[in-house]
Computed example of a mutant assay.
Amino acid sequence: MPTASAPQPAQRNAVFLRALEPEDLEFLFALENDPDIWGVSDTLAPVSRTALREYLLHASADLYVVRQLRLVVTTEISSAPVGVVDLFEYDPLHQRAGIGITILASERRHGYARQALELMKNHARHVLRLHQVYATVGMGNAPSMRLFRAAGFRRVGTRQAWLRTATGWQDAVEWQCLLEAEQS
């Protein structure tokens, strides 16, 4: 008689990173105009489709010129975007960049952010040859704090009253990941 096996964990849906395409206009419009994420993206006003069309025309510009890279997060089940991951404030001399990630509210808690962050770290390390990436996270953003900690980032400091929110000033936690230290 066959024995019952323990239930297997659900298979994780793999994510992929790809360049922005003109077809991403409506996705970006919805993402950039979500007031719930304005606080973490230093945005105070809606973005027009015209401005986003112009942005998409130049989104593939050279990293060395624009000092930023935005890639779209998609899943293996659907090619529809579920989020974006950004490198910004790219510094070629010191081989570092800031990193940020936004996943659509309806797509959170599926592990997409963690997988996308790992893919971007690998791209930063092996393709861009960066030494480190860093992130600034509002003290009240517990899910992002857990994400960066789980992704191998180290908490390196706190900036007091750094972020202005609707309810007052909030501290910001600085996270750093030395990419070369991860190679083994």
Rank of each mutant, 00 (worst) to 15 (best):
T3D: 06
T3W: 12
A4H: 11
A6D: 10
P7M: 02
P9C: 03
A10P: 01
Q11W: 08
A14Y: 01
A14H: 04
V15K: 11
F16T: 12
A19T: 09
A19V: 12
L20C: 06
E23C: 14
F29Q: 02
E32Q: 07
P35I: 13
I37M: 08
G39P: 04
D42F: 14
D42R: 15
L44C: 12
A45P: 00
A45D: 04
P46C: 05
P46K: 03
P46G: 02
V47F: 08
R49L: 06
R49Y: 07
R53K: 10
Y55I: 07
L57G: 03
A59F: 05
S60F: 07
A61T: 11
D62W: 07
L63N: 03
L63M: 01
V65D: 00
Q68F: 06
Q68L: 04
T75L: 02
T75W: 04
E76N: 10
I77A: 07
S78P: 06
S79V: 08
V85N: 06
L87Q: 04
D91I: 01
P92N: 12
H94Q: 10
Q95I: 03
R96V: 00
R96H: 00
R96C: 00
G98D: 05
G98Q: 07
G98V: 10
I101Q: 05
T102V: 10
I103G: 02
L104K: 13
L104I: 10
L104Q: 14
A105K: 15
A105L: 11
A105S: 14
S106F: 11
S106L: 08
H110K: 15
Y112C: 02
A113C: 13
A113H: 14
A116I: 03
L117I: 11
E118A: 13
E118Q: 13
E118H: 15
L119R: 14
K121G: 06
H123R: 01
H123M: 02
R125G: 02
V127D: 11
V127M: 14
V127N: 14
R129F: 07
L130M: 06
H131R: 15
H131M: 05
Q132P: 00
V133E: 04
Y134R: 01
M139N: 02
G140V: 09
N141H: 13
S144T: 12
R149F: 12
A150D: 03
G152K: 11
G152P: 06
F153N: 06
V156A: 05
G157N: 04
G157Q: 06
T158N: 09
T158G: 05
R159W: 14
L163A: 06
R164G: 03
R164T: 03
T165G: 05
A166V: 13
T167E: 11
W169H: 15
W169P: 13
W169V: 09
Q170E: 15
V173Y: 08
W175N: 08
Q176C: 02
C177I: 11
L178N: 15
L178C: 13
L178D: 14
L179P: 00
L179H: 00
E182G: 09
S184C: 10
S184W: 13
